[in-house]
Nucleic acid binder design. Structure first.
Lengths: 205, 205
DNA sequence: ACCTGAACACCGTTCAAGT
DNA sequence: ACCTGAACACCGTTCAAGT
């Protein structure tokens, strides 16, 4: 009945590709290398994966989910401003832990069949929620976009050593996050007469 | 005396690689394709270029210089705030014109022998100058870093269709730029008691 | 001094054949 | 139903040989 039982798994193949990417960048994730890791010959992978590109796309989508989990893990739900700061630092910390995968996640999405944007939307859900609490639901989107653009841009240039300016990078990042979150909260309070946050407890780190 | 005159040029090879990258992305710039464009066989390229990686690196460095020129071209030197806004839009416009090269420029700089950071420093020189005029020389660096991070982050996510949120993208970008430039200028005036800009002429677009 | 054909190692992928 | 060896097309790169 089962002439040739499966000697590997879709999940094992995905994990092998993910690890190879983390360790050596995109060039290191060859079908041969993946096959060796899961204990199989390269052609057998095509029973589990349609192509190398599709495999790399799956790794990228998995990375998006991981980032979303990392963001959701640090929200405390007390003060939106401190939650936003925490998410910004969690995001950058994830990128520092797995720089190759971070680059890959944001470099993907070629023109050819786009990755489901639903995943990305789910990943930024906690961010949007905190932004809604800070600036109100009608301005949540632009606030999230401003913060995400800054955090990703800073991290991306940091990993690329781009525009290699001197100075302390950690404090520069924190300065930018504090400035943006403060500007968003302050502008919102001024514009809409709202007071951000309900619990005045000292959750601000 | 000249048994085999050069049938191509370093510059022609660089231009061919640049055009192929613009048209079809990194995968399209094969040594074979470059050779066809310059009218030569693939092995001959190695008399002009040490490797495909080196050629792609040269394309990236050339792109950095191009971006720097695009930034420098829009400064008018009257109002630093409006110059910064103009540079932000010029940067994004360059990315829209050549998205493949933009991605490549910011994706390069692998761990292996880094590109000369001097090029990047020269490219952002006009930005730093306007920032110095706006917030003072001692805060110019962090202001430039904040703006660059936002502009690059926004553009990068836009090209990747990352976190595909709805809404008008053009006005969202302009809103972010105006907010940041305004916050930097305002904060500077408040903190240091300075008045930004010397000519109050209406150069603000 | 540069160009060329032939060759090498490596890659992604296909496929008929095994079990 | 999955795995395998062999094969194909393609890639970057090397090199002896041409002129």
């Amino acid at each position: 009945m089962s002439p040739a039982p499966a000697r590997t798994t879709d999940a094992a193949i995905l994990a092998a590709a993910r690890d190879l990417l983390d360790e050596g960048g995109p060039d290191a994730v060859t079908m041969q290398a993946v096959a060796v890791r899961v204990g199989v010959r390269a052609p057998s992978l095509y029973k589990h994966v349609v192509s190398r590109d599709a495999l790399l796309r799956a790794v990228a989508e998995d990375g998006i989910v991981e980032i979303g989990a990392a963001l959701a893990a640090v929200v405390r739900g007390e003060d939106p401003a401190s939650d936003l700061r925490a998410m910004a630092h969690a995001f950058r910390s994830w990128a520092h832990r797995t720089p190759n995968r971070y680059r890959h996640v944001f470099a993907s999405s070629r023109a050819a069949d786009r990755p489901p944007t639903g995943l990305a939307a789910a990943a930024v859900a906690p961010l949007l929620e905190s932004c809604a609490m800070l600036v109100g639901p009608e301005r949540a989107l632009e606030a999230a976009r401003l913060l995400t653009a800054y955090v990703h841009g800073f991290t991306s240039m940091e990993l690329a050593e781009g525009f290699g300016l001197g100075g302390s990078v950690d404090s520069a990042f924190a300065f930018g996050v504090d400035t943006l979150v403060g500007a968003l909260g302050g502008a919102s309070e001024r514009a809409a007469g709202r007071v951000a946050g309900s619990d005045p407890g000292g959750a601000a780190a």
